[in-house]
Every structure is written in structure tokens, then in C-alpha cells.
Design a binder for these strands. Structure first.
Lengths: 123, 123
DNA sequence: CAGCATCCTGTTAGATACTG
DNA sequence: CAGTATCTAACAGGATGCTG
């Protein structure tokens, strides 16, 4: 696979650069680290949530941004959308196995941030 | 410490929400997951780099964004700036211990993205 | 070489209103 | 309840030129 990141970790010295602009990793990194991406992914990490629950969990997110973030992740195969055709409608969102893998890598980061954020901002 | 993330992982049920809007974690998360934040942090993970080296490592970053990203991380205490008052000037950037901790949590994520990005984008 | 100043653009995101 | 539609605003980000 020709993803430069994995290759370049070894610092071959000949490879032009470590983080080329036109690399699929950039796209995925952008999705996941989008303003609400991390928060949505981690909210679903403990189990599926309904639309409204998600909105309340990720405080401050607008309906538009929640919809767009979820659709992006659905297209990426990170999130499942399960819509019940009932009235009133009920839609549950959950992580796919792939999404769970991503969330798993996000958890240590968020835990660390939670532990150090105050000190950093106060500085 | 009143960082809601760490607390809420247990799903107390009484806590209003998991990711409140006015939380220092939001600020730090924004800095680190900014468009170039992850790439800069990881570029420095293997050792200090000069300004120009960083520009080349993180392909596509503009001078303005590199400067602003570095200044933010410097203020957060994640990056050290070491300026030699020589002519021509030489400035080296390196991670602080705090920055190294952050980068360490970013590595698994980037490795995972590198392994899965193509499949996700191709989808 | 390592920036900063200035100006400018466009995506990203917020507000509001409406619907099946 | 779970969205869509539309309109607008803000700020991240880019281009260019200049300097110690």
C-alpha cells in the first residue's frame, strides 16, 4: 500500500516528504478531526444513540453539522444508520467495526486531553 | 479536576451531557485537531526540525499557517522554539515533554488511518 | 533563513424556519 | 422525532510582498 505515512516513519532519507498533500490519509484525517468528528465518534463509542440523544451529548452542535458529520462518517463506513419507519420516526446511530477501531484510537487522546487541558489553557 | 470528559466516561446518568460546550478540552482538542496540528506534532515526534524542514515535511502548509500553528502549540506548552541569533537565522522546533505525550497518543491514530484510509476513500 | 503584514477568499459552521 | 432548506456570518486559510 502506498500510503506515505506508514512508509516514512522509518525516515528513509530519500523519500521527498513525510506528509504529502495528495494522500488519502489527509481526507480521512480531515473527516475524523473535523470540528465535531471526534466528539461524535466518541459519543457513540459506548453504544448506539438516537439522533436527539446525540445532539444533547455533543453540546453545541447544530442540526446541520450533526447531519453532515454523520453522513460523512456513514459514507466512510464508520457509522451505521438504522432508521425505523415508524411514526414518530426513530433513528439509531452506532459505530461500525471500523468506526470502533477509530474510536479506540481516539480514546487515549481524549483521556490525555481531559487530564491536561486545564493546565494548558491556563498557561 | 472538573473536566467533564473524564468524569462522564462512567455514564453517571445524572450528569447533563458528555461533552459540554464550555470546557477547556474543547479548546485543546481544537488546537491539536486543527487542520495542520496533527501533522506538525507528528513531524516533530522523531526529533527537532528547522522551520524550513517543517515546511517541507508538512507538504501544502503555508507560512502563515505554519507560524500560527507553531505559536499556538508554543503557547500551549507543546512545542519549544529555539532561535539562534545568527545570520542567517536558524530556528529549531521540538516537542516539549507535554508535546511528546500528545504526539504519542496521535501515533496510533495516524498509523490506523494510514492502514485504512484507502479503503475508506475508495468506498 | 525565518518569518510578519496585509489583503483576500471560501469553506465551515450557525440561525432560523419548515416538513414527513 | 428526525431531519431538510436557505440564508448569512465568521474565521480558517491562502497569496503576495517585505524585512531583520
Amino acid at each position: 500500500m502506498d500510503v506515505s505515512f506508514a512508509v516514512s516513519r522509518t525516515r528513509p532519507g530519500i523519500t521527498a516528504e513525510k506528509y504529502p498533500a495528495d494522500c488519502p490519509t489527509r481526507t480521512v484525517l480531515t473527516h475524523i478531526t473535523s470540528k465535531w468528528g471526534v466528539l461524535v465518534l466518541l459519543s457513540l463509542e459506548q453504544g448506539s444513540l438516537r439522533w436527539g440523544e446525540l445532539r444533547r451529548e455533543v453540546e453545541g452542535i447544530s442540526e446541520k453539522m450533526l447531519a453532515s458529520t454523520l453522513r460523512t462518517f456513514e459514507a466512510d463506513g464508520l457509522v451505521n444508520r438504522d432508521a425505523q419507519p415508524s411514526i414518530p420516526p426513530r433513528v439509531d446511530y452506532s459505530l461500525t467495526p471500523l468506526g470502533r477501531e477509530a474510536a479506540l484510537r481516539l480514546l487515549p487522546l481524549m483521556d490525555w486531553i481531559a487530564d491536561n487541558a486545564e493546565a494548558m489553557v491556563a498557561r
